[in-house]
């Protein structure tokens, strides 16, 4: 590490040791959770650890993935996340298909359609742009040592509670369309074609957009 002449190596060693210590503690917590609580909590803890690690290492930020193409014409991060969505869609679809064919319930994140989604998503986007990060980004950056994101989290909890208090009023906007699972609305081949087609089109558009923005 020749480029770190000005950094003293003992400080680096200390950071690594503390990091290793936290890793050990995290694993102990996993075991304790696994032994004494329903396994869902241990798995959720593990999911969080893995995602926090991956997000930090790959600098993935959902806000930046949406913002950077619009502001700076850069789409590498966006394309990384579109790719991620392609793979997760295939995985989710396979699991859903298997469960439905076994007569089990449909799994996934479904919310009835209505104006609450556009309005809420817009407000969320405004906040994410102003505070420099979305929900996952805020948590990841607290881990990175940002005091600012601790304030964001406080605001986040306050806003969430405020929103939960007001939600009864907003949820009058929830519409009739309760089934939002594309394969149920269409059928499996059509839904997969539509989903992957949209993602591939977004990917290609992002690729072209960057080329266009940085043409010399």
């Amino acid at each position: 590490m020749a480029d770190k002449k000005r950094l003293n190596s003992s400080g680096l060693g200390i950071q690594r040791k503390v990091g290793g210590g936290f890793l050990l503690i995290a694993l102990v917590i996993y075991i304790v959770l696994y032994l004494f609580l329903p396994p869902l909590f241990a798995y959720s803890w593990l999911l969080g650890l893995a995602l926090g690690f991956i997000l930090q290492r790959s600098r993935i930020c959902f806000t930046a993935a949406i913002r950077d193409p619009l502001l700076f014409g850069m789409t590498e991060l966006s394309r990384g996340l579109i790719l991620s969505l392609m793979i997760s869609s295939l995985g989710f679809a396979a699991l859903q298909y298997y469960r439905l064919s076994q007569g089990l319930s449909l799994i996934g994140r479904f919310v009835p359609l209505g104006w609450h989604i556009p309005i809420g998503a817009f407000i969320f986007g405004l906040g994410a742009a102003i505070s420099g990060g979305c929900a996952s980004g805020t948590l990841m950056r607290i881990g990175e040592g940002f005091q600012m994101q601790l304030i964001v989290l406080i605001g986040f909890v306050l806003g969430s509670t405020h929103g939960a208090y007001d939600a009864g009023w907003w949820y009058q906007l929830i519409g009739e369309q309760e089934v939002t699972h594309l394969p149920t609305i269409l059928n499996w081949p059509k839904a997969l074609l539509l989903q992957l087609g949209l993602l591939i089109m977004l990917y290609l558009f992002a690729y072209w957009w960057e080329k266009y923005q940085f043409r010399s």
């Binding site: 770190k4 000005r6 930046a64 950077d68 700076f72 850069m74 940085f214």
Partner: peptide, 27 residues
């Protein structure tokens, strides 16, 4: 900012500028 540490050089390289990045202190 770990994000800026990646996206500033990325942007400059795409513009065709010469970029050098050095960690001067922890983080």
């Amino acid at each position: 900012h770990t994000c800026a540490m990646t996206n500033v050089p990325e942007w400059a390289r795409k513009r065709g500028y010469k970029v050098k990045s050095e960690e001067v202190s922890f983080g």
